[in-house]
Structures are given as structure tokens and as C-alpha cells.
Design a protein around this nucleic acid. Structure first.
Length: 217
DNA sequence: CCTATGATGATCT
DNA sequence: GATCATCATAGGT
């Protein structure tokens, strides 16, 4: 039985590097999700780096809390959080240990399991939209907080893993400010994407909510 | 294509 | 109580 090099899993050492190296290096890689519904494979086209306690845009900026604790653990694990009352976002924890950094997986192209992804993403108007955005990606892959902290290298068929895939030519890798990040971290060019790829999500600048108080009924 | 806005609840201060 | 690493929808261009 032969396995082509692009189907080989990445090693844990791949993730045990500075997040600013790992993030662009993840573009073009293949994310594999095994769940009860079936298998999804996705080619990553857009990611963002969050550099831990030194990064004002990072959940880890103000230190360890119950939510962000897996960011402080070893690399090669998932960090899944719930946001805006409705959505989940999926990150991969990077090294070195103690840095509390992670890569937000923002978008990709579904290569395997398009039918299953469409069942989970009824509102998608085309296949290009199935994982165009971090919460859409998490929805298409059936990722929620149950997956938080899971090890990408947990046994022969982990719930989530990353294969080598085919990285794009370096001159197609672009970088710019992170979507929806404000404050002192707003201008770091730590969003990375494949230029011209139709599955990359639109950039949105940080939009502060202004006096948006809700009635308490 | 674009912009504006409501939905919804965990988290942290 | 404010914020939030977002999305779907409605309506204008």
C-alpha cells in the first residue's frame, strides 16, 4: 500500500514553531475531519496568526483563562471557541510551548464531502461559500466545543488532522491586517491568504458596536 | 456588487 | 454591562 507524499500527515514539529512561520505554511494544506456524519477534506486558503500574550488581538493577551487554556498547552492541538452567541471558530495551537499562540483557520475549498458540507450549510449559494469564513468553515466541518483541545496526532484516525497537500507558489501567498481585529493589534499583517482564490473570505475592518444595548425584556 | 443591521450567549471586568 | 477573531438577510446600486 502506497501513500503519496501529499497525503502524509504533518508532524507535530511542524506546529512547534513560531506562529508567524506556521500560519502561511498552512496554506494549501489539507485539513481532514472525521465525524459521525462522514469525512470532509478541505484545502486551506486563508488563515490568521494570533501570537499569544504579546499580541493585543489574541485571546491569550490577558493571560490564561478557562476558555483559552489550551492555547497555553503543547502545539498540535485544536482551540475551538464559541462567539457571537451562535458560531464556532477553529484554531490550531502552535509553539513553542508557553507562547500561547494559534492559527485561526478562516477559509478553504471543500475537496471531499461537498454533499455533506452542503447539508450542514443550507444557506450557501455556491460551493465556494461552503467554508468562506471561519464560522462557515467550522459549521461545514461540524466543529464545536466538543473538539476543543483535541490532539491532531491522537492515534491513527484523529477527529481532525492536517496532511501535507500542495502548498501554493510563494508569490501567491499574500498577507494583510487581520479581519475584525481592532485596538493595538489592528495593523499587524498577520492574515495570510492565497491570492485570487475564490474561497477566500472578504476582508472586513474592525467595526466597533456603538451603544448597542439590548433590552433585558 | 455593496452596505446596514439584528441575532444570540459565553466570557471577562 | 460591554464586548465579541461572525453570519444571513434585506434592500440599494
Amino acid at each position: 500500500m502506497t501513500t503519496s507524499p501529499d497525503r502524509a500527515p504533518l508532524t507535530r514539529d511542524f506546529f512547534d514553531r513560531c506562529v508567524l512561520e506556521v500560519a502561511p505554511d498552512l496554506l494549501g494544506r489539507t485539513l481532514v475531519r472525521h465525524s459521525a456524519g462522514g469525512t470532509i477534506e478541505l484545502r486551506l486558503t486563508e488563515v490568521e496568526a494570533y501570537a499569544g500574550e504579546v499580541d493585543p488581538g489574541s485571546h491569550a493577551y490577558r493571560g490564561r483563562t478557562p476558555r483559552n487554556s489550551v492555547m497555553f498547552g503543547p502545539p498540535g492541538h485544536t482551540y475551538v471557541y464559541f462567539t457571537y452567541g451562535m458560531w464556532h471558530c477553529l484554531n490550531l495551537v502552535c509553539g513553542p510551548e508557553g507562547r500561547a499562540s494559534g492559527v485561526l483557520l478562516r477559509a478553504g475549498e471543500i475537496d471531499v464531502g461537498v454533499g455533506l458540507a452542503r447539508e450542514r450549510r443550507i444557506s450557501a449559494r455556491s460551493d465556494k461559500e461552503l467554508a468562506k469564513g471561519p464560522a462557515r468553515l467550522a459549521t461545514a466541518l461540524d466543529v464545536d466545543r466538543e473538539l476543543n483541545g483535541s490532539d491532531l496526532f491522537d492515534g491513527p484516525a484523529p477527529a481532525l488532522s492536517v496532511l501535507h497537500g500542495t502548498p501554493p507558489p510563494r508569490d501567491l501567498v499574500r498577507s494583510g491586517p487581520r479581519t475584525g481585529v481592532g485596538g493595538d493589534g489592528a495593523h499587524q499583517p498577520w492574515r495570510f491568504w492565497i491570492d485570487g482564490d475564490p474561497t477566500v473570505s472578504p476582508y472586513r475592518a474592525h467595526a466597533p458596536r456603538h451603544r448597542a444595548s439590548r433590552r433585558t425584556t
